[in-house]
């Protein structure tokens, strides 16, 4: 599955960057009872509780931040598996300064899923992913506003 989109934050790039790179904020931006613990400066371990149509379960996984160019861009690599299947994905995030102290975030990514998640939840995955991204971005926007 391919993920692609952009979003404009009402805040300057360094603030948006700091929000994005704050692991505690990131954890709350993902719906479900998500936990993320740093295991190094660029690697995090955690779990996420997901429900996609008839499939639900806890996924344990790892998030790695690579190719980091502060405060501009980075690559996110996620790997997770649980009772309901597995997911493996790579995402690329780019922040560009905009007039009026705004920041444009462009994101592209590819997500591969397998197991019950794919065989039973297939028809719901696109819409679930979209709604998760939308909800997450709104949370991040709120955090950016608080830090201004």
């Amino acid at each position: 599955m391919e993920i692609k989109g952009d979003y404009t934050f009402n805040g300057p790039r360094p603030v948006v960057w700091s929000v994005l790179r704050d692991v505690n904020i990131l954890a709350t931006a993902i719906p479900g009872e998500t936990t993320l613990k740093p295991i190094s400066a660029t690697e995090y371990e955690g779990s996420i509780k997901l429900k996609i149509g008839p499939v639900s379960g806890v996924f344990a996984g790892k998030l790695t931040v690579a190719d980091e160019v502060v405060p501009e861009s980075c690559t996110l690599i996620i790997e997770g598996k649980g009772g309901a299947g597995f997911a493996k994905g790579t995402g690329y995030i780019k922040l560009t300064e905009q007039p009026d102290n705004k920041t444009l975030m462009q994101y592209t990514g590819e997500l591969g899923i397998g197991g019950k998640l794919a065989s039973v939840g297939q028809r719901m995955i696109d819409s679930v992913a979209k709604s998760m991204i939308k909800g997450g971005l709104e949370k991040l926007e709120k955090e950016v506003a608080q830090r201004l």
């Binding site: 008839p54 397998g114 197991g115 019950k116 794919a118 065989s119 039973v120 297939q122």
Partner: peptide, 14 residues
């Protein structure tokens, strides 16, 4: 199946 031989329609919904 997808290109990795992963079944994509394993329920009577699909």
């Amino acid at each position: 199946y997808d290109e990795n031989a992963q079944l994509l329609n394993g329920s009577l919904m699909d």
